[in-house]
Design a protein around this nucleic acid. Structure first.
Length: 454
DNA sequence: GAGTTTGAAACT
DNA sequence: CAGTTTCAAACTC
């Protein structure tokens, strides 16, 4: 991977003429890319962290460095290109990549994640303070100046995400980042924002950060791009080995339950060293484990295959099963039941589907019941008797009865599907009926009380 | 929640 | 490369 230098000249004040070093970028993956940059050699690396000059963006200055550090996120497709910053459309969209900004004194590695659901991630609050652009891939990106240099901004609409425009040595602390909007949302949720202060780079002891990134550049679950990743519980690895999911995903730990965690900015040196060690051991350590299979095979498959011995590849111990893909020819598993025609697998799938449907039905029924009661509270006039303690009969309407019946039917279906004995089923249904009654009574009582007070 | 099982990662 | 150990997540009770 070579580093290319690009001049920014057009539309810039000549005194601001700057050199930009942009490295070719790598493909998106589960892993972050600082790993790629570390292998390039170089005496000093810095993990780039968010800009701070915009209301929703954090800028952190590392002592001893003249540069504003940023963390960048970019799209999942496209190829590396050479860029002419400020020029006409000389660039094409690029892949999520790590970037090395060679400023002459400091090399900064930029972990970059694929931005997948950018449209929905763009916070409304920031669109007024940052320039939002839409490219052919319908991804929105932001140009966020680390310091004010507004005349540059309009010329970067064609830069790929993940591009850092850094100044030549001696030109001051000015840097630009083209960042997909999703990352701004990450920033808002990340404790990176709270851990950094505008006066300097101070991270309180124990503070952990975790920028959420899609796993493998793919969504392993329908909502994986929006759901916070599970916190790790590492106790011995210092979160600096691939045992740690956060580390393996190229993320900082944040809100984890780990002990003696070194996977944070506070232990940047150790972290980068660990990344290098992992890469020395396995250059593909941070590459996606789930990739495209050979022709004729499933689109997605485990890059190395699993080695399961006892789980039949039908438990989450199995990386293939966990990724919701079938085992392939490269797996070395024993007694595998994770293949297309496997009856065990089909049964598991049916059970999982049924469970999901049950949960949805039950949730819907309960929501409807609550809605009916709530609706009644607003449109009925409770009948209160003077001290008689009777509840308003108007609450037992046709709608409430129907909603109650739905709850009971759902409970019946659930017990039937799970093969519960009849006696237990009846008991569960009765209990559900009791819950419904309690809700009705509670609502009616509240309405009565409200009426008395009014 | 504690203890067990599991398989990937790390180590020898 | 193979065997063993370490580790943290998944799972069971």
């Amino acid at each position: 991977m070579s580093t290319k230098t690009i001049s920014i000249s057009e539309s810039l004040n000549t005194s601001l003429h700057k050199k930009i070093a942009i490295s070719p970028l790598k493909s998106p993956s589960k892993s972050l890319k600082p790993v790629q940059t570390v292998t390039m050699g170089g005496s000093h690396f810095k993990t780039i962290i968010p800009l701070a000059t915009q209301p929703n963006v954090q800028q952190i200055q590392v002592p001893g460095s003249r540069f504003t550090y940023v963390r960048l996120v970019t799209s999942t497709t496209a190829n590396p290109t050479t860029l002419q910053a400020g020029g006409p459309t000389t660039s094409t969209m690029q892949t999520a990549k790590p970037m090395v900004v060679n400023t002459g004194t400091v090399r900064m590695s930029v972990p970059i994640a694929p931005a997948q659901t950018m449209k929905q991630m763009v916070p409304k609050s920031i669109t007024t303070t940052t320039q939002v652009m839409t490219n052919a891939q319908t991804q929105q990106r932001l140009i966020m100046p680390a310091t004010s240099l507004p005349q540059i901004q309009p010329n970067f609409t064609n830069l790929p995400p993940g591009t850092v425009l850094a100044p030549a040595p001696g030109t001051g602390n000015v840097g630009y980042a083209v960042v997909p909007a999703q990352y701004v949302a990450q920033l808002q949720q990340s404790s990176l924002v709270t851990m950094a202060s505008s006066s300097g780079f101070h991270t309180p002891t124990g503070v952990q950060t975790q920028a959420r990134l899609p796993v493998n550049g793919l969504s392993t679950a329908p909502d994986s791009s929006t759901r916070p990743r599970k916190p790790c519980n590492c106790t011995k690895s210092q979160c600096l080995k691939l045992y740690c999911d956060c580390f393996a995903n190229g993320e900082f730990c944040n809100n984890c339950n780990c002990n003696n965690c070194f996977n944070n900015l506070e232990h940047e040196t150790e972290r980068l060293k660990a990344i290098k060690t992992c890469l020395d051991r396995n250059p593909g350590a941070f590459k996606p484990k789930i990739g495209k299979g050979k022709q004729g095979e499933s689109d997605r498959r485990h890059s190395k295959g699993c080695n399961c011995k006892r789980s039949g590849c039908l438990k989450n111990y199995c990386e293939c099963y966990e990724a919701k893909i079938m085992c392939s020819s490269i797996c070395k598993c024993v007694g595998c039941k994770n293949f297309e025609e496997s009856p065990e697998r089909k049964t598991l799938m049916h059970l999982a589907d049924a469970a999901e449907v049950r949960v949805q039905q039950q949730t819907a029924a309960k929501t409807k019941l609550s809605s009916q009661i709530s609706d009644l509270l607003t449109r009925t006039t409770p009948i209160s008797t003077s001290g008689g303690g009777r509840l308003p009969y108007t609450f037992v309407t046709k709608e409430v009865v129907e909603a109650t019946c739905e709850c009971l039917l759902d409970q019946a279906r659930q017990t039937e599907l799970s093969g519960q004995p009849q006696a237990l089923a009846e008991r569960l249904i009765l209990e559900e009926f009791g819950h419904c009654l309690m809700r009705i009574i509670s609502s009616a009582g509240k309405a009565k009380s409200d009426c008395i007070n009014c």
